[in-house]
Amino acid sequence: MKRNTFMQLMAFSAVTSLFLTNAVMAEAPDKARIMADACQTCHGPNGVGSGKIPELKGLEKSDITESLLGFRSGDEKSTIMGRYVKALSDDEINMLAEYFAGLDK
Protein backbone atom coordinates (compact mmCIF):
# COMPACT_ATOMS: atom_id res chain seq x y z
CA MET A 1 0.00 0.00 0.00
CA LYS A 2 1.36 3.42 -0.99
CA ARG A 3 1.93 5.83 1.87
CA ASN A 4 -0.57 8.26 0.39
CA THR A 5 -3.31 5.63 0.19
CA PHE A 6 -2.48 4.46 3.71
CA MET A 7 -2.92 7.99 5.09
CA GLN A 8 -6.22 8.30 3.22
CA LEU A 9 -7.37 4.98 4.66
CA MET A 10 -6.47 6.10 8.18
CA ALA A 11 -8.38 9.33 7.70
CA PHE A 12 -11.37 7.45 6.38
CA SER A 13 -11.23 4.93 9.22
CA ALA A 14 -11.40 7.82 11.65
CA VAL A 15 -14.35 9.37 9.83
CA THR A 16 -16.11 6.00 9.53
CA SER A 17 -15.42 5.23 13.16
CA LEU A 18 -17.04 8.48 14.15
CA PHE A 19 -19.97 7.69 11.89
CA LEU A 20 -20.31 4.19 13.33
CA THR A 21 -20.00 5.52 16.85
CA ASN A 22 -22.85 7.90 16.17
CA ALA A 23 -24.86 5.19 14.44
CA VAL A 24 -24.48 2.86 17.40
CA MET A 25 -25.16 5.64 19.89
CA ALA A 26 -28.32 6.51 17.99
CA GLU A 27 -29.58 2.95 18.41
CA ALA A 28 -29.95 3.35 22.16
CA PRO A 29 -33.65 4.06 22.67
CA ASP A 30 -34.47 7.60 23.78
CA LYS A 31 -36.95 8.65 26.46
CA ALA A 32 -39.88 8.97 24.02
CA ARG A 33 -39.35 5.47 22.65
CA ILE A 34 -38.94 3.80 26.05
CA MET A 35 -42.02 5.52 27.47
CA ALA A 36 -44.09 4.86 24.34
CA ASP A 37 -43.07 1.21 24.42
CA ALA A 38 -44.64 0.99 27.87
CA CYS A 39 -48.00 1.95 26.29
CA GLN A 40 -47.78 -1.05 23.94
CA THR A 41 -48.21 -3.57 26.74
CA CYS A 42 -51.93 -2.71 26.90
CA HIS A 43 -52.51 -0.98 23.57
CA GLY A 44 -50.65 -3.59 21.49
CA PRO A 45 -47.61 -3.44 19.19
CA ASN A 46 -47.32 0.09 17.75
CA GLY A 47 -50.46 0.96 19.66
CA VAL A 48 -52.79 -1.41 17.82
CA GLY A 49 -54.16 -4.93 18.07
CA SER A 50 -55.59 -5.34 21.53
CA GLY A 51 -59.16 -5.10 20.34
CA LYS A 52 -61.16 -3.57 23.12
CA ILE A 53 -58.47 -1.11 24.19
CA PRO A 54 -58.46 2.06 22.00
CA GLU A 55 -55.84 2.21 19.24
CA LEU A 56 -53.14 4.87 19.32
CA LYS A 57 -51.54 4.61 15.90
CA GLY A 58 -52.83 7.03 13.34
CA LEU A 59 -54.36 9.46 15.82
CA GLU A 60 -53.68 13.17 15.44
CA LYS A 61 -51.20 14.62 17.90
CA SER A 62 -53.74 17.18 19.15
CA ASP A 63 -56.32 14.45 19.83
CA ILE A 64 -53.86 12.40 21.91
CA THR A 65 -52.70 15.46 23.85
CA GLU A 66 -56.27 16.56 24.49
CA SER A 67 -57.30 13.12 25.74
CA LEU A 68 -54.29 12.69 28.02
CA LEU A 69 -54.70 16.18 29.49
CA GLY A 70 -58.41 15.46 29.95
CA PHE A 71 -57.70 12.14 31.72
CA ARG A 72 -55.17 13.87 33.96
CA SER A 73 -57.51 16.69 35.01
CA GLY A 74 -60.49 14.33 35.29
CA ASP A 75 -62.47 16.31 32.71
CA GLU A 76 -62.42 13.24 30.47
CA LYS A 77 -63.79 10.14 32.17
CA SER A 78 -61.71 6.98 32.17
CA THR A 79 -61.49 3.65 33.97
CA ILE A 80 -57.69 3.40 34.26
CA MET A 81 -56.00 6.10 32.16
CA GLY A 82 -56.67 8.85 34.69
CA ARG A 83 -54.78 6.81 37.28
CA TYR A 84 -51.83 6.44 34.89
CA VAL A 85 -51.58 9.91 33.39
CA LYS A 86 -51.31 11.69 36.73
CA ALA A 87 -47.65 10.58 36.64
CA LEU A 88 -46.88 12.47 33.44
CA SER A 89 -45.62 16.03 32.96
CA ASP A 90 -46.90 18.29 30.16
CA ASP A 91 -43.66 17.69 28.28
CA GLU A 92 -44.06 13.94 28.55
CA ILE A 93 -47.66 14.08 27.34
CA ASN A 94 -46.53 16.16 24.37
CA MET A 95 -43.66 13.78 23.68
CA LEU A 96 -45.90 10.67 23.71
CA ALA A 97 -48.54 12.34 21.53
CA GLU A 98 -45.86 13.29 19.00
CA TYR A 99 -44.46 9.74 19.03
CA PHE A 100 -47.75 7.97 18.34
CA ALA A 101 -48.94 10.60 15.83
CA GLY A 102 -45.64 10.06 13.99
CA LEU A 103 -46.09 6.32 13.50
CA ASP A 104 -46.98 5.22 9.96
CA LYS A 105 -50.70 5.35 9.44
Binding site: Q40, T41, C42, H43, G44, P45, G49, S50, G51, K52, I53
Partner: peptide
Amino acid sequence: GWYKGITMD
Protein backbone atom coordinates in the same frame (compact mmCIF):
# COMPACT_ATOMS: atom_id res chain seq x y z
CA GLY B 1 -57.61 -6.33 25.67
CA TRP B 2 -54.76 -6.13 28.18
CA TYR B 3 -54.20 -9.88 27.88
CA LYS B 4 -54.12 -9.72 24.11
CA GLY B 5 -51.79 -6.71 24.15
CA ILE B 6 -49.31 -8.03 26.68
CA THR B 7 -49.03 -11.47 25.08
CA MET B 8 -48.48 -9.94 21.61
CA ASP B 9 -45.91 -7.56 23.07
